[in-house]
């Protein structure tokens, strides 16, 4: 049964921020509860009925506009502080830093599959270094799951058909619970795992230990050739489909007007539903790969496209503001993706 405690361990940079917000909320709400409860208690005793026929003075005020305004405006002001504070923590929690370590997660009834860019794959376990921001890009193969690490105070639903992301910077080495927090069927409560936060050196050792079948991008490249994507997506503009080098992070002009940023979600959609957004200048000739490749294979392809994107190719999706170098991507050519 472990030691009794009121707070979960604080093991990320976000954890103390959320806990400070908690202290504030607890302080305010306890204060108001005490004021309300003791007032009621006092009135209940002070004005208790002393005889069965006792009638209070019927002419006392039963309206007070000043009072009503006071007890509407003050609480509203306080809730504005709560709103602002809560929103600012949320903002931090929603914006991963650009140098974050990229990890991919796929939820599947009832397990977490986690993949490192270097090619290490884990199930229900995630090894990460302490002190470095980690960004997870997540999707689900079936129903909605939710990636929840109480010690990091972080939670994000993992939704089939799209990528969601979360990030955290672990501040303490150790072993922490990973829970699925969105009900996902029979063994929902068994969809749990552990996060191992390690010293950077240990992490490097761990990374290099164990055989891998190549990095995600390497596997993506193999798949790219295997699936004959390279027949049409050539490195120059001679293919029937848009060239992919330097695509990632750029703005893509679409047939029918408009542009879209080539982020992970866009790449994924273009593989699974190629007709959804056709690149200006290209025919919609690409077949769909929906149902033909797994989410993990999609991730490999995405990672491959990232790896041939503008350097440094290791950053997260939104590192892609690179106006300086985008030679052949969107504008100059063609393409349907």
């Amino acid at each position: 049964m472990g030691n009794f405690q009121f707070l979960p361990e604080q093991a990320s940079t976000l954890a103390p921020e959320v806990d400070h917000l908690l202290y504030f909320l607890v302080a305010v709400t306890v204060f108001f509860s005490v004021v309300i409860f003791s007032t009621i208690f006092y009135f209940a005793i002070r004005y208790r009925r002393r005889s069965a026929n006792e009638m209070p003075d019927a002419h006392q005020a039963h309206n007070g506009y000043t009072l009503e305004i006071i007890w509407s405006v003050i609480p509203f002001g306080i809730t504005l502080v709560m709103f602002t504070w809560g929103a600012s923590v949320f903002f931090t929690a929603s914006r991963p830093p650009k140098d974050a370590l990229q990890i991919y997660a796929v939820g599947k009834r009832w397990m977490w599959k986690l993949e490192h860019v270097e090619g290490q794959r884990e199930i229900n376990e995630l090894h990460i270094p302490v002190g470095r921001p980690v960004r997870l890009t997540m999707t689900s193969e079936d129903v909605i799951h939710s990636f929840f690490v109480p010690a990091f105070r972080t939670k994000q639903d993992v939704v089939p058909g799209r990528y969601t992301s979360t990030w955290f910077t672990p501040t303490k080495t150790g072993k922490y619970h990973l829970f699925c927090a969105e009900f996902c069927g029979t063994k929902h409560s068994g969809m749990v795992g552990w996060i191992y936060v390690m010293e950077p050196n240990d992490y490097q050792t761990w990374l290099s230990g164990g055989a891998t079948e190549g990095s995600l991008a390497e596997n993506g490249k193999k798949l790219f050739e295997q699936l004959a994507c390279s027949n049409c997506h050539k490195d120059d503009t001679t293919g029937r489909c848009p060239p992919l080098p330097n695509l990632f992070g750029s703005q893509v002009k679409l047939a029918g007007g408009g542009t879209v940023k080539a982020d992970e979600a866009y790449i994924r959609e273009s593989i699974l539903q190629p007709q959804a957004k056709v690149v200006a200048g290209y025919e919609p000739v690409m077949p769909t790969f929906q149902g033909l490749i797994s989410e993990e294979q999609v991730l490999q392809l995405v990672e491959y496209v990232k790896s041939i994107g503008p350097k440094p190719g290791t950053g997260p999706a939104d590192s892609g503001q690179n106006p300086a170098k985008k030679p052949s991507t969107a504008g100059s050519m063609p393409a349907n993706r």
Partner: peptide
Amino acid sequence: IGGLTGLFLAALGMDIHVTD
């Protein structure tokens, strides 16, 4: 108590941790 704890859940940064 129920209403005041609703204030916790409405606070975005707090809700990430306590929702579900």
